[in-house]
Design a protein around this nucleic acid. Structure first.
Lengths: 109, 109
DNA sequence: TTAATTAATCGTAATATTGCAATAAATAAA
DNA sequence: TTTATTTATTGCAATATTACGATTAATTAA
């Protein structure tokens, strides 16, 4: 009832779902877009650039960090966030492998 | 409060989020995995193969169909679902483009 | 030390998602 | 037509997510 039955799915299936969840909110996509743009990392400017409250942005950053997509370095009073390049590559490969799973020249219906 | 503020994000950001949402639940990933395996399409066997109620599977299929990842053909009393190859490619390209956005040789923190 | 700045956390409210039993709808078979 | 089969829909209940104000924690500057 309302709870995802993680145990009935394979590791791979749960992993894809977890990774996809990271990109499943436009605010998190926007955060990543901003991190792409400035290859030196931005910090709390994200709050100004994206129109969400500081608490909300912080929450989204935490989720991205938990999944391992970004990492944060404390610099004085502010925190510098940036893409975790190694993990990004790993995640990209996982998702790409999944998306490449389907032969694109078959149409059964 | 509690509502995603779609209007403050770009079209592209919202699209990525919408597409990612399709893959953000293991049941939907499992459904797609099953559709990959049998390149002739499966129908209600999904209910037996995945351990979820018929209503739940039907709901997930509907979501995948709404996003355009799969399509269904009525065949007698049953429905034959399969990957929408054209859309799959389009979705794959969109996500891949996003994932390729980040230069993997930069590490700012 | 005190004030200012910045980010994380807490508490709460609202909406979204997930799951299923029950039912409806549609087709096939008898 | 009646019955079986299969899928979609409806109507809940429970959990998850999103968002933000208020507060806390940590560091810097004065």
């Amino acid at each position: 009832m309302g709870v995802t039955k993680t145990e009935i799915f394979t590791e791979a299936q749960n992993e894809i779902a977890t990774l996809a969840k990271a990109f499943a909110h436009p605010a998190r996509v926007a955060i990543l877009h901003h991190l792409f743009k400035s290859n030196t990392c931005i910090c709390g400017d994200l709050v100004d650039e994206i129109g969400l409250a500081q608490a909300t942005i912080s929450q989204h950053l935490k989720e991205l960090k938990t999944i391992g997509i970004i990492k944060g370095n404390i610099e004085g009073t502010s925190v510098c966030y940036c893409i975790d390049t190694e993990n990004w590559t790993r995640i990209k490969n996982t998702i790409t492998a999944f998306l490449d799973n389907h032969p694109t020249n078959i149409n059964c219906c």
